[in-house]
Every structure is written in C-alpha cells, then in structure tokens.
Deep mutational scan, measured.
Amino acid sequence: NSLAEAKVLANRELDKYGVSDYYKNLINNAKTVEGVKALIDEILA
C-alpha cells in the first residue's frame, strides 16, 4: 500500500466513527504508512 492509499483508507475509517478534523489532519501529516496505522490504532482505541 502506498502512503496516499493508507491516508484515504484511514480517513474513511475515521468518518465511520465521526472523528473530528483534528485527527484527520494528524493522519494527513503522517510521513509513513506505519505512522498512519499507529495513529488509527491510537485514535480508535
């Protein structure tokens, strides 16, 4: 998966839960796919 794909999928996942734009910005600023995954795990914990 590319970083861009990971960000799109992460933001879709956040949308399902009604997560605020603050967290979407964190996702969009992530530098690695692993970073995106770690943020998602933390946000949805």
Rank of each mutant, 00 (worst) to 15 (best):
L26G: 02
A6V: 10
R12P: 02
K24T: 07
L9I: 15
A6H: 06
N28A: 12
G18R: 06
S2R: 13
I43M: 05
V19A: 10
L26W: 05
L44D: 02
K37Q: 12
K37F: 12
N29V: 09
L39P: 00
G35Y: 11
N29S: 12
N11R: 09
D15Q: 09
A10I: 03
K7E: 02
L39T: 03
I27L: 06
I43Q: 01
L9D: 13
T32E: 02
Y22V: 06
A4C: 08
V19F: 15
T32C: 03
V8E: 15
V19L: 12
A6T: 08
K7F: 01
K31C: 06
D15N: 05
R12K: 15
D41A: 12
A6W: 09
L14P: 00
E34G: 06
I27Q: 00
N28M: 12
K31A: 12
K24W: 05
E5D: 12
N25Y: 09
V8M: 15
Y17R: 11
D21C: 08
D21R: 04
E13F: 15
A38H: 08
A38F: 11
A4T: 11
V36M: 03
K31T: 14
E13Q: 10
R12N: 14
A30I: 05
N11S: 11
I40E: 02
A38V: 09
V19P: 07
L3F: 02
L26C: 08
D41Y: 10
N11E: 13
N28Y: 05
I40G: 01
K7Q: 09
N25C: 10
E13T: 12
V36S: 00
V8L: 14
A45K: 15
G18N: 10
S20G: 13
D15S: 09
N1K: 10
L39M: 08
N29H: 09
K31E: 14
E13N: 04
A30H: 02
V36K: 00
N29T: 09
K37V: 07
L14R: 01
L26V: 04
I40A: 08
L44S: 04
N28P: 01
K16T: 06
I43V: 08
I27E: 00
K7C: 04
A10S: 01
N1E: 12
V19W: 09
G35W: 07
G18S: 05
I40L: 15
A45P: 06
L9V: 15
A4W: 10
K7R: 03
N1Q: 14
L26M: 10
N11H: 13
N1C: 13
D21Y: 04
L39D: 00
V36W: 00
G18P: 05
L39G: 01
I40D: 00
T32Q: 02
L3V: 05
L44P: 01
D41R: 13
N25D: 15
I43H: 02
R12G: 11
E5W: 08
Y22D: 07
E42K: 15
L3H: 00
D41P: 03
K16R: 11
K37S: 05
I27R: 00
N1V: 12
N29M: 13
V8A: 15
A30W: 00
D15E: 13
L3K: 00
K24Q: 06
D21H: 05
K16Q: 08
V8R: 14
E34K: 07
G35K: 13
T32G: 02
L44A: 05
V36P: 00
A4R: 09
A45Y: 10
D41T: 14
A38P: 00
K24R: 13
E5R: 10
V33S: 03
S20Y: 04
N29E: 14
E5G: 07
N1H: 12
A10T: 00
E42I: 12
A10K: 00
D21F: 04
D15F: 04
L39C: 03
V8W: 09
N28H: 08
N29Y: 04
S2A: 14
A10Y: 03
D41Q: 14
K16E: 05
A30T: 07
K16P: 03
I27V: 11
N1Y: 09
R12D: 12
L39Y: 03
V33R: 03
L39Q: 02
I40P: 00
I40N: 01
D21V: 04
I40C: 05
I43K: 01
V33K: 04
S2C: 04
L14D: 00
T32M: 02
L9W: 08
L39E: 01
L14W: 01
L9K: 15
V36H: 00
D15P: 02
K7M: 05
V19G: 11
D15M: 08
A45D: 07
D21P: 08
A38T: 10
L9G: 09
L14M: 06
K37W: 15
V36D: 00
L26H: 03
T32V: 01
S2Q: 11
L44I: 11
I27P: 00
A45L: 11
